[in-house]
Structures are given as structure tokens and as C-alpha cells.
């Protein structure tokens, strides 16, 4: 896991971002082969955000997000094998195959999901921050949602309460410019200032180049420090771009090929780190190719595991509906 402060253009962050990229490409492939079903929202293009934010949080800080969540899980140190096995609906998946792409959790890695309903991470993450405040444990909850979710009423209800009670939460708005097929300009008033959406509640906000991991980490460090010292919530609007459709079944007719190509070729967050590493003499092109080979091997292993792992036992249909507990009189 990465976690060294300020360690933004390192071989470790390069690896972490590339792992997300290759993992998502493989997930896309497996979806195409019919091995992953349902909805599958890929994170390709947005890798700098979770990777950069990971470098500025500490052990015990929590992460929660919506359904474009594979990158968040990998950056939390969750095992690609078991994430992929969840995507293929197999018994070793993080949710025993019962959650799928949008619903995965790791209590051990402080990853609180993985939520399929737009906007819900806002109050849930605020609630985790409430628990931090209640326990006075010094932890911060990173609460991610998209720019589309940023128009939801529950987000503002949460902003109000988080600011009122000075809760240690950092709201990260991943503005990838399209809420499914609706561009941010078509769906949001004052679309170029989402970072300002907390102003009415006295919540500071910043707009950040989400394609540049150094910018993400710089702003992230300010935000996390603010929240941890008890000054209340902070909003980071990460300007980013998803290369793929909203989900695998999105024909993406709402934007031009050229627009996607331009970002891919000129603003790719992983190329940026690779170039910096080469410019600084930390790595050669050959080194980066070697890393790519290693990452591909990890991802191929994960895919192989996820395809060979058995489906859940039919008995699992009935388990985990309720926490099994003794009747109170027996307890």
C-alpha cells in the first residue's frame, strides 16, 4: 500500500495507478465476455484521485464512495483477486458474490463501500465522521461522490450537519463531466464552481486538477489537515474525466471521440507520472514497461482466479440477511 506523505510521483504511485488502469481494462474485457454481469462502472481516467488522496490519509482513516468504486478499493489495499472474484460473482469475492461491482466492503481496510444509490455516500460518510467525532479518535472520513450526485438534496442536508457539528469529513467530488449522459453544464447550475457548493454552509472548497496526482495530494493534504484538526468539513472538486461510458452498456453518444482522444493523449494521469519519473531520472521507459508487465501479471492472475473460483454455495442465498444472534433472554 502507498501511504508516504507527499510521495506523489513515485514508482509506488505509478504502480498503484497502473494497477487500477489494468484492472479496469481487464474488468471491461471480462464484461465483454459475459463473465461479469449487471452494471459495471469503470474508473479509467480518474486514477490520480484515489491514488493521490491515499498518500495524504493515515492508517484508520475511512473511505466511502458510490458505485464507480473499483479504484477506491484497490487504493485501500484490497486484494485485486477478491475484488475481481466479486465482479465475477464468485464465493471468494469480498461480498461472497452477493454484492457485485457496486457493493463491496472491507472492514479491515476501512473501506465502507460501494453504494449503488446516487448521493447516499454523502450522509453515510458524514455518519462515519460523526462516529469519529463521537469517539474522538482523530480519524477522517474521505467521502467520494460524483458531480451528478452533487445536485442531490441529501448532499446539502449532510453539508449543513457536517458544518454545524464540525465533523471530520472531506467531501471529494469527482467531476468527470458527465452524469451518465448529462454533461455538468446541462445538469448543474454554476457548473464550473462545484467546489463552491458548500459556501453557504461555511465549508471551504477547492477546485483541483484531478488528472495531476501532485495537485490532488497538495489539496488533499490541506483538506485532511483541516478536517482532522476539528475545523469541520472540506470540499475538493476534482476535475477529471472518465474514458469509458457511464457503465459498460453506455453508447456514450453525448460526447465526441475527439474529446476523449484529446484527454487520453494529452492529459492522461498515468502518463503524467511516468513522464515525471523519466524526467527526474527515477525510471527509464524500460523500467516502466517492466512495471506494466508485472501489473498485467497481477491482474491476469486475479482474472484467472476470479474465473476459476466456484460460484457461491446455493445455501448462501439465505445467509447474512440478518446477523444471527441469541435471543435476548439467552444472551
Amino acid at each position: 500500500m502507498i501511504g508516504r506523505k507527499g510521495d506523489t510521483s513515485s514508482l509506488d504511485t505509478y504502480r498503484a495507478m497502473l494497477l487500477i488502469r489494468r484492472f479496469e481494462e481487464k474488468a471491461g474485457q471480462l464484461y465483454g465476455m459475459g463473465r461479469i454481469g449487471g452494471f459495471c462502472h469503470l474508473y479509467i481516467g480518474q486514477e490520480a484521485i484515489v491514488t493521490g488522496m491515499r498518500t495524504v490519509i493515515e492508517e484508520g482513516d475511512q473511505v466511502i464512495t458510490a458505485y464507480r468504486d473499483h479504484g477506491h478499493m484497490l487504493s485501500c489495499g484490497m486484494d485485486p483477486k477478491y475484488v475481481m472474484a466479486e465482479l465475477t460473482g464468485r464465493r471468494s469475492g469480498y461480498s461472497k458474490g452477493k454484492g457485485g461491482s457496486m457493493h463491496m466492503f472491507s472492514v479491515e481496510k476501512e473501506f465502507y463501500g460501494g453504494h449503488g444509490i446516487v448521493g447516499t455516500p454523502a450522509p453515510l460518510g458524514t455518519g462515519i465522521a460523526f462516529a469519529n467525532h463521537y469517539r474522538d479518535n482523530g480519524r477522517v472520513c474521505l467521502t467520494y461522490f460524483g458531480e451528478g450526485a452533487a445536485n442531490q438534496g441529501q448532499v446539502y442536508e449532510s453539508f449543513n450537519i457536517a458544518s454545524l457539528w464540525k465533523l471530520p469529513v472531506v467531501y471529494v467530488i469527482e467531476n468527470n463531466r458527465y452524469a451518465m449522459g448529462t454533461s455538468v453544464e446541462r445538469g448543474s447550475a454554476n457548473a464550473h464552481k462545484l467546489y463552491n457548493r458548500g459556501a453557504a454552509f461555511g465549508i471551504p472548497g477547492e477546485q483541483v486538477d484531478g488528472m495531476d496526482i501532485s495537485a490532488v495530494a497538495d489539496a488533499g493534504a490541506r483538506a485532511v489537515h483541516h478536517a482532522r484538526q476539528g475545523a469541520g468539513p472540506y470540499i475538493l472538486e476534482m476535475l477529471t474525466y472518465r474514458y469509458r461510458g457511464h457503465s459498460m452498456s453506455d453508447p456514450a453518444k453525448y460526447r465526441t471521440r475527439e474529446e476523449v482522444k484529446d484527454v487520453r493523449e494529452h492529459h492522461d494521469p498515468i502518463d503524467l507520472v511516468g513522464n515525471r519519473l523519466m524526467d527526474a531520472g527515477i525510471a527509464t521507459e524500460e523500467d516502466l514497461k517492466t512495471i506494466d508487465k508485472e501489473i498485467r501479471a497481477v491482474v491476469n492472475d486475479a482474472a484467472e482466479f476470479a474465473l476459476e473460483d466456484p460460484e457461491p454455495d446455493p445455501e448462501e442465498l439465505w445467509t447474512d440477511v440478518l446477523v444471527e444472534s441469541q435471543a435476548p433472554s439467552e444472551a
Binding site: Y112, Y134, E157
Partner: peptide, 21 residues
């Protein structure tokens, strides 16, 4: 005491419960 915002405080309760409160 919460503000009159049921959607948020129900979610805040659920989030706090996820952590064991």
C-alpha cells in the same frame, strides 16, 4: 438534536452504525 432533514440524519445514523455505534 438534528436539523429537520430526515434523509441526512437517517443516513448519518446508518453510517455511524456501520462503524459499530
Amino acid at each position: 438534536d438534528t436539523p429537520i432533514t430526515e434523509y441526512a440524519f437517517a443516513g448519518i445514523g446508518a453510517g455511524a452504525a456501520f462503524t459499530g455505534l
